[in-house]
Amino acid sequence: MRTLNAAQITEAIAKTASEKAYHIPEEILRGFDQAMKNEKSETGIDVIKQLKENAAIAAKGEVPYCQDTGTAVLFVEVGQDVRIEGNLEDAINEGVRKAYVGSFLRKSIYKDPLRRVNTGDNTPAVIHYSIVPGDKVRIVFGAKGGGSENMSKLIMLKPSDGIEGVKNFVIDTVSQGGANACPPLVVGVGIGGNFEKCAILAKKAALRSIEERNADPFYAELEEEFKTKCNNLGIGPMGLGGTVTVLAVNIEVYSCHLVALPVAVNINCHAARHGEIVL
């Protein structure tokens, strides 16, 4: 049994969370370069130029890329052969606290959804745990913006709605909410599982690299088809009209009940901040 001190988890999360606020992933920057080639609208090109310049200024480390430095979302995979010394959940939240307080990030978390008082340190994080084989801890960290999260949706389709039903729901969700979600977007789609599993799949998809396609060629093809359809909507960068509305559509799937066809769409803005930690 391997032993891992919870303090190491705190340090790693603090480092990743503060880094991501200032440095958006390289793959997103490559996505902007590609968007410059694909965008036909002059206004749209202006917007993408601003996003590239914004990324370059933020990367100097003084001002975050976006003022909404997000909800900290973590997928934590704990190897079954590792024993964690200390309180894991406290350690994770301490890492988030250190980053948001110490790196001048915005604290956007209210303690209670209706009584709305800020916790002052951006905790608690939203954490999804799973137990996996091995003796490592793998964490996917995301700093998820609130505006795009508000444009996300879930539906319990009937199996008879089929692939057309899924397509229509995904495209309609982007069509209705895309302009407000800071396009060019990363669209995370969950298909299958049950009510809550489906939403988690969509979140996983929204935090996946835009350069990674689904391993199943059937779904990889569907990702490309959805991407083309979203871009044909004409929403464009910042919703001002154009040919690049999404950088990618990522799909994650899971088995489901014979009466069910759940679909969730989790929209991520162009500040698609995510990173991986392995300890």
């Binding site: 917007v47 200024i57 976006c66 500040a271």
Partner: peptide, 13 residues
């Protein structure tokens, strides 16, 4: 007026 959403560092200047 629309400002570029997410361009927090650029607008800071």
């Amino acid at each position: 007026f629309g400002a570029t959403g997410g361009a927090g560092a650029l607008i800071n200047r």
